[in-house]
Simulated scan of single mutants.
Amino acid sequence: MEVLRSISEIKEKVNEWKSNGLSVGFVPTMGYLHAGHKSLIEKASSENDRVVVSVFVNPKQFDNENDLETYPSNLQGDKALIAGAGGDIIFAPTAAEMYPDGFATLVDIEGLDKELCGATRPGHFRGVCTVVTKLFLIVTPDRAYFGEKDFQQLAIIKRFTKDLNIPVEIIGCPIVREEDGLAMSSRNAKLSEEERRKALIIIEALNIIKEMVYQGTSDVEELKKEASRKISTMDIAKIDYFEIVDPDTLEKIDVVKEKALAATAVFIGKTRLIDNMIIGE
């Protein structure tokens, strides 16, 4: 599995493919890949002639220096997973390659970043928009693949791609879960055995309110109160947010009329995990 470090190298490779009439799929990641990433790469491989996977821990989207410094990495393991899933090239630039001295341009978005993760992590989505825009311009893929676990991120990327007329088709892919229901995440590796077991309180809370809606409860405050109560029964769980929003606008709602998005971020010990579920379908 070839790993390219420079922007010029990856642009040259992609231009070579495109000159031969080949389509290019792209899966941006921050590394430490798992089965969820594998599913994205496999889908990209099934729909494109060539697949680029980026591995870059983007410093501009972290609001906590310790979180950045302790983010897990395993490039050798990533290479094996990418090769097995049908990826063709890894683009793994350094921060200096992506943000050289004098870098002064940021990409921001209004509206979609105000709730959920955006409300508690100021500047996070500015960093996401900036790096994804750069990656799209560098790789120039036909299609790019993102997991629905980061539902807000996916909505924002779809929005700015449309607004800026970037010729990339954005494809969202379903959340991949462990057998016991925990959403797969690179951050799961930071959990102790006890924390890993107790993290299941997140999916349990989501399932409870999904069933409540199915049984006829539609009041959002009642649903949020029950979800928060459930999560708070776990001693090491601290809720960052638990919201129920319109899945298209990400705006808060008072009543679940049709489908809605229940989304949460919870600290299990020191590790922040996110998850979401469509309810009311």
Rank of each mutant, 00 (worst) to 15 (best):
M98G: 10
R143D: 02
R159Q: 14
E69R: 11
S228A: 12
E193F: 06
Q152T: 08
V176N: 10
N188P: 10
G118W: 01
T217I: 15
Y145M: 12
I253W: 11
E69A: 12
A119H: 08
V176E: 14
V53D: 06
T29L: 05
E65I: 02
T105Q: 09
E2N: 12
P28G: 07
M234N: 12
E69P: 01
L22S: 07
E169L: 10
T264S: 14
G172T: 06
V107Q: 05
P247T: 07
V3R: 03
Y99W: 11
L135N: 07
T249F: 04
A189E: 09
N66W: 02
T133Y: 14
F125Q: 03
T120H: 13
R5N: 13
H37K: 00
G123T: 05
G181I: 10
E42L: 05
Q61A: 08
P174R: 05
L191H: 01
V220S: 09
A237Y: 05
T130I: 01
S54G: 07
F136D: 05
E115S: 14
M277I: 15
I82M: 07
S46H: 02
D49G: 08
L68R: 00
G77F: 04
E204L: 06
A144T: 09
L206W: 12
G118I: 04
K114A: 07
A144W: 06
A44L: 04
Q153W: 12
I7C: 11
R5P: 02
D78S: 06
K198E: 15
K13D: 02
L223A: 01
I171E: 08
L135V: 11
Y99N: 13
H34R: 02
A262L: 11
P122H: 05
V213D: 11
P141R: 09
D275K: 01
S23I: 13
L135Y: 04
M98H: 11
D219Q: 12
F125L: 11
A205R: 00
T161D: 14
P167G: 05
K162G: 11
P59S: 07
K252T: 09
A119L: 13
I201K: 10
V24G: 06
K225A: 14
W17N: 00
N20P: 01
Y71T: 00
L22P: 09
L116M: 14
G87W: 10
L22W: 03
K79G: 08
N48I: 05
K38I: 12
R50N: 12
D78Q: 04
S45W: 01
E115K: 10
L116W: 03
